[in-house]
Design a protein around this nucleic acid. Structure first.
Ligand SMILES: [Zn+2]
Ligand SMILES: [Zn+2]
Length: 738
DNA sequence: AGCACGCCGACT
DNA sequence: GTCGGCGTGCTC
């Protein structure tokens, strides 16, 4: 009898299973979990990840194919990554092979070696000293310093990342102070022990900051600190100093920031403070740059790693701390495919690696607040504004019965005029792009709708076209009504373009800057507008969420929110929370330093209890009463949600599919306790991008029982004859219900 | 998701 | 006749 060694392999395919292969004799003893392996799969050969070696298979050795080759001598995925990606795959019901794949840089998925690009390295020549350069040659001296600190060589790439230009390097080379040599090891390395960490001195902490820093670093083991502080309260300084402390003991820091938060300004803040290699992991990197960054993180040479959602899977050799900045930001939850929440995975990872986790925000998510109130997180506040700046004054502008001009009440326009004449800047927030959200026939009332979605087309003027924001369909602006052929088509409602136009005509001598995705899509457009704003001259900014995140406007004294009612009566139970967070975030742009700010909220509901609580008692009071409502209604974070979505090309198919799943389970199986199942019902926007959508919601009192039910659903889908006619997905802990 | 296999319409 | 349309089924 022959014994075969059998390998269990995760294959990147949408199938929710693992696959077994015979281990070729020459690979016996070599294959380890976390290694890439090439295997035959159907008619092709693909790269999978070894999950387990020497397993028992339900398939006979005759049915099993033989694995082809190992791609790694050591696991590419370290133990933490391997565990985290698999844990997330199970928790979010995503195929393990796909999840593991997403934890790897693209080049490794394609089978490339986990090595740095062949690079030209630079080092100082044997006789080079700083005194060989004139004191006036500041940048050259800095570059030479860098080279002197790294006698083993620095790659051209790393020199550029540090902000030195090629001519600068050439100047040193011409003076025979620097020389190049070929190699392909890591492009960057600091000798441990002798490294300089800081480039600039840290600021002095106030008492609250100092105690937050202390709580974060003590103990140095796993614990989660939720640090709540308004803009300008110095949260960043706290974590910069926490990073400094962990760098001093030779460890690395991982910082997650929201999708629009990874700006050059954010990065320069770190680079200005720290001497050590800072790596940004963002969508602008080439596959090669991403792999190099990943490798530098893994071998410990990159000390500070800043990235968006997917950076949670970046390996670290010496993990010291994880920081999730703006922890409430929805971009930490992936909205399609592998629907993980990076903040939640950060908790898991920090626990696994036994390091502190810092969550910072001005407006905690109710999930995090709930965890803090339950004692799972420490919760500290920074209540003092830096430089003793006074908090902005909030005021409701009751717009009931008011005649609005492009979304603005006369009193608002009056306020804008006042602030501008005081030579300060005004920021207007309207979370709606385009000129107008609908185009209506004045004679018959017909609305211009998207043919592929249950939604109105948005009118854009620059450039002029109709645009569906749900499926991206674009058409010319119609000249006549499609129903009655009238030519009297009128835009109804205001978007940023329309408000911009109105402001320009009201204030012809004042620059009006529109900041939204459309106006900033051209390269440097945003940068140029920011430059103009930072001259400090009076101006009006009108924009969407883009304005609310990341940017600081010290000369702004008036912030106006045109539609504070946006989330008030939304079908989504998180609407109120999202609106409150946005309002406070926008308000945080006003009145820094010596100028005090004013925040005007245009609303039809100045007496709405939640809105009033937010404005008069602050976010925390608001959030606590919102938590009470959630608890009463059995909503998250008290109960847990999972949303089963389905879509199909024909109306009714998606719903029929979901219904048959539900019926099959309810008639043949006994349900785990504590779950409340609702639906299927049509999605809030039933038709979108030409597909008809339906969904079911499951609310579970206990996670394990909810997951048991979800596993039953997975099983049932496998055998369901309609599964190929629909696209479907499970969303665990969904953050919206579209 | 890929990819092959297979069974009908319309093109050289 | 055969090229290709995409429905159906399978991947250890
Ligand atoms: Zn009409
Ligand atoms: Zn559409």
């Amino acid at each position: 009898m022959v014994f075969y060694v059998i390998l269990r392999v995760a294959i990147p395919s949408p199938l929710h299973k693992l696959f077994d292969y015979l281990c070729p004799v020459e690979l016996e003893g070599l294959a380890k979990p976390g290694m890439r392996i090439k295997v035959p799969f159907g008619s092709r050969e693909i790269i999978g990840i070894v999950i387990d070696t020497d397993v028992h298979s339900d398939y006979s050795s005759k049915q099993l194919k033989t694995a082809l080759m190992l791609l790694d001598a050591d696991p590419v995925l370290d133990a933490t990554q391997f565990w985290l990606a698999r844990w997330a795959a199970h928790y979010y019901f995503y195929p393990e092979g796909e999840a593991l794949q997403q934890a790897l840089p693209v080049l490794l998925r394609k089978g490339q070696e986990p090595t740095f690009a062949h690079a030209t390295l630079w080092r100082a020549t044997a006789h080079a000293t700083l005194s060989s350069l004139a004191t006036s040659a500041k940048r050259q001296r800095e570059l030479l310093e860098l080279l002197l600190r790294n006698p083993q060589g620095v790659s051209t790439e790393a020199i550029k990342i540090e902000g030195f230009s090629t001519p600068l390097l050439k100047a040193l080379a011409d003076k025979h102070l620097a020389e190049s040599f070929a190699s392909h090891p890591r492009p960057y390395q600091f000798a441990t022990g002798s490294e300089t960490i800081l480039k600039e001195a840290p600021l002095t902490l106030n008492e609250e900051q100092a105690s937050a820093l202390y709580s974060l670093l003590n103990p140095s083991h796993f614990h989660t600190l939720l640090l709540e502080g308004i803009t300008g309260s110095g949260k960043t300084e706290v974590y910069l100093q926490a990073i400094e402390a962990i760098l001093k003991v030779g460890k690395q820091a991982l910082i997650l920031v929201p999708e629009i938060g990874l700006t050059p300004q954010t990065l320069s803040r770190f680079k200005a403070r720290f001497q050590v290699p800072v790596m940004a992991l963002h969508s602008g990197l080439t596959d090669r740059q991403r792999l190099d960054a990943w490798l530098m993180a893994r071998d410990g040479s990159a000390r500070i790693l800043i990235g968006t959602r997917s950076a949670i899977f970046t390996p670290m050799k010496n993990p010291g701390i994880i920081i999730v900045d703006e922890e409430h930001d929805p971009s930490f939850k992936q909205q399609e495919g592998f629907r993980y929440h990076a903040r939640d995975l950060a908790v898991l990872r920090a626990k696994k690696e036994d390091i502190p986790l810092l969550l910072t925000t001005a407006t905690p998510s109710l999930e995090s607040l709930h965890n803090a109130l339950d004692g799972r997180y420490q919760h500290l506040h920074l209540r003092q504004r830096a430089g003793n700046a006074s908090a902005p004054k909030f005021k409701f502008l009751d717009i009931r019965g008011e005649a609005l001009q492009a979304g603005m009440a006369p009193e608002l326009i009056h306020h804008i005029r006042q602030h501008l004449s005081a030579q300060t800047q005004v920021l207007i927030f309207l979370n709606r792009r385009g000129f107008s959200p609908s185009l209506i026939c004045h004679d018959c009332g017909a609305v211009n709708e998207c043919t592929r979605c249950d939604a109105r087309m948005t009118l854009h003027r620059s450039p002029a076209h109709m645009h569906c924001h749900h499926c991206d369909r674009q058409t010319p602006i119609p000249k006549r009504c499609h129903q009655c052929h009238s030519e009297d088509l009128r835009p109804s409602g205001a978007g940023t373009e329309r408000t911009e136009e109105q402001l320009k005509s009201l204030f012809p001598n004042i620059p009006v800057l529109r900041i939204d995705r459309d106006s900033t899509s051209r390269k440097h457009a945003l940068e140029n507008m920011m430059k103009q704003i930072h001259t400090g001259q009076p101006c009006i900014m009108i924009g969407t969420q883009m304005l609310a995140k990341g940017h600081h406007f010290p000369r702004v004294t008036l912030v106006a929110v045109l539609d504070a009612d946006a989330g008030l009566f939304s079908a989504d139970f998180r609407g109120m929370e999202k609106t409150a967070q946005l309002i406070l975030q926008v308000a945080g742009r006003a009145g820094r330093a010596e100028l005090s700010g004013e925040v005007l909220l245009q609303t039809h509901h100045p007496d709405h209890p939640m809105l009033a609580a937010l404005v008069t008692q602050g976010y925390e009071a608001f959030a606590k009463s919102e938590l009470v409502l959630r608890q009463g209604a059995g909503l998250p974070p008290f109960h847990h949600h999972a949303l089963i979505r389905a879509e199909a090309s024909r109306q009714g198919w998606a719903e029929a599919f979901l219904r048959s799943i539900r019926e099959a389970i309810e008639t043949h199986l006994s349900l785990p306790p504590g779950n409340h199942w609702s639906g299927p019902f049509p999605s809030p926007m039933e038709k979108r991008a030409g597909l008809f959508r339906s969904q079911m919601l499951i609310q579970g009192r206990e996670r394990r029982h909810l997951h048991t039910l979800l596993r039953m659903i997975m099983q049932e889908v496998e055998h369901n004859p309609m599964k190929n006619k629909v696209r479907w997905s499970i969303d665990v802990d969904p953050i919206d219900s579209y």
